[in-house]
Design a protein around this nucleic acid. Sequence first.
DNA 1: GCCCAGGTGGGTA
DNA 2: TACCCACATGGG
Length: 226
Amino acid sequence: MTDRLLDIFNCLLQRFGPQHWWPAETPFEVIVGAILTQNTNWKNVEKAIINLRQADMLCLHGIHQLETGKLEALIRPSGFFRQKAARLHSFIGLIMNRFDGDLDRLLALPVGELRKTLLEQPGIGPETADSIILYAADKPSFVVDAYTQRIFSRVGLLSGRIEYDRTRALFMENLPRQTELYNEYHALIVRLAKMHCRKRQPLCSDCPLLAVCKYGQTACQGLTGP
DNA sequence: GCCCAGGTGGGTA
DNA sequence: TACCCACATGGG
């Protein structure tokens, strides 16, 4: 299993190269982006991030002091703005109340404890929690998204019920616990998925997996199927 | 006008 | 457990 997972990883890396995720300046910005991008196109998230930056509010204390209505107005382009404003304020409340306003103290927790703490916060589910651990705390926690589940089911590496934690375990139990590897792997899967989304083709002719490894055809079907 | 995007949580059976 | 639905904007 380890060899198969690394085989696919190398195919993607060879085709696309390093993705240099997460596209953010600081750990705090990673967290803001992770919440804002829930069920939302990243382009829309970027608009909200730009609004926050231009208002000089893209920081812990900035958002903390911002009235809910004003925060909602700034992040409106990212959609679900009422929910997301509440989630941002709630998350910052955690840092203020339990970590003395010091984000680094939260991120310094051991992975298991950090993940548990994150999952207890309203609006932080498994994907958002793992994104924060991997891309903000720089610790190994594999990020699973809908595409990951579909691709790896279709190529036959996942069987039975498709569940977040089972998919995550497939990677974490079969790959070395390396932050950089998890980082690139998830980013490359998203990169592959975006290529298919743009083209909207049932099967692609230039899929990197199709070109360089035996999983190509089924992976492509996995991307576009139900 | 319709579909989708780097999800989450509450309700119901 | 397994669905169903609300949440909302912007691009193709």
